[in-house]
Design a binder for these strands. Structure first.
Lengths: 156, 156
DNA sequence: GATATTCAGGACATTTAATATCCAGGTTAT
DNA sequence: ATAACCTGGATATTAAATGTCCTGAATATC
């Protein structure tokens, strides 16, 4: 999995604590000492996916495009890592005996089905957790986190 | 995910229909028209993981090392793809404000926990499915499959 | 309007992992 | 003795991840 997933999940949680204000890629990168240009690529992907909004020019930057309650971890994984599942069925049964050339073995093959079923539970789990969930949980454990975060961004 | 996972899952199901007989890597590869030497590497990994037994020399080859009911899909994924999870926490919180240098953020970080929880459901699902499950399901749908498979192997 | 800031995105460069191939050495059935 | 077969290391090839750089477009501010 793309390391950018980790970066932008943290960035989205941080952005949820700075509502209504655009934060530049440079500052988001400086927060965790990440490579700016590369993080910017990931942020662009989130923008294309409708998770962030971006603005050019001075006072420009990125913000969450919607309520963090409506941004799931799956949304982010799909935006950064793409929609493909980890297990890719190459339909090797087509090379086996009694193969049906017209069959879609990605659907029919028992192994493919089992792997897809497992990935489905994974995705369901990720779909059930939102950026707001995570942010709330952080606040429960570390009440100062939002303040500390805003403070750090103010000094970048 | 390594494509070898697909190859060896199919191979293990096939082997479950040829109990007590060693099948060479060459024949296992020919069955699905796979690169022999590379498949052999995957089979070696399964052998090291205790899923297969191997024998050198004429009449040598690979067999299932235990009852297919006791070989889970997770066993195979771990043997081929390694034990690492897809999401790798790099502890970027250590670069953030108020970081605790002694903390293990792979355990403490809320994002890391959420991703690990999701992968856990995935692994639990895979751990709950065995090679025998899949083989039985195939037989239920295609009763001729074991016979066809044995027949094809006999002619390779 | 000029300027400085920032995002957008394409074109690279580098590193790492996946996907192989080959061979030399050890094992074993015949 | 011989041939078949697995083992594992070395190496090659390809694709993906990771990262940099630069041009162009948008825009806030003076």
């Amino acid at each position: 999995m793309n390391e950018g997933v980790e970066w932008v999940m943290h960035s989205c949680v941080n952005l949820s604590w700075i509502p209504g204000e655009a934060v530049t890629a440079k500052r988001l990168a400086a927060f965790y000492n990440l490579p700016t240009a590369y993080l910017n690529k990931q942020l662009q992907a989130l923008t294309r996916a409708g998770i962030l909004t971006s603005a050019s020019g001075p006072k420009g930057g990125f913000q969450l495009a919607r309520d963090p309650r409506d941004i799931s971890l799956l949304d982010i994984v799909v935006a950064i890592d793409g929609p493909d599942e980890a297990f890719r069925c190459t339909e090797i049964l087509k090379e086996g005996p009694g193969a049906d050339a017209k069959a879609d073995y990605t659907k029919v093959c028992v192994i493919s089905q089992a792997m897809r079923a497992a990935e489905l539970t994974y995705r369901r789990e990720l779909a059930g957790r939102s950026i707001a969930d995570l942010a709330d949980e952080v606040v429960r454990r570390y009440p100062d986190a939002p303040g500390n975060t805003r403070n750090r961004f103010a000094n970048l």
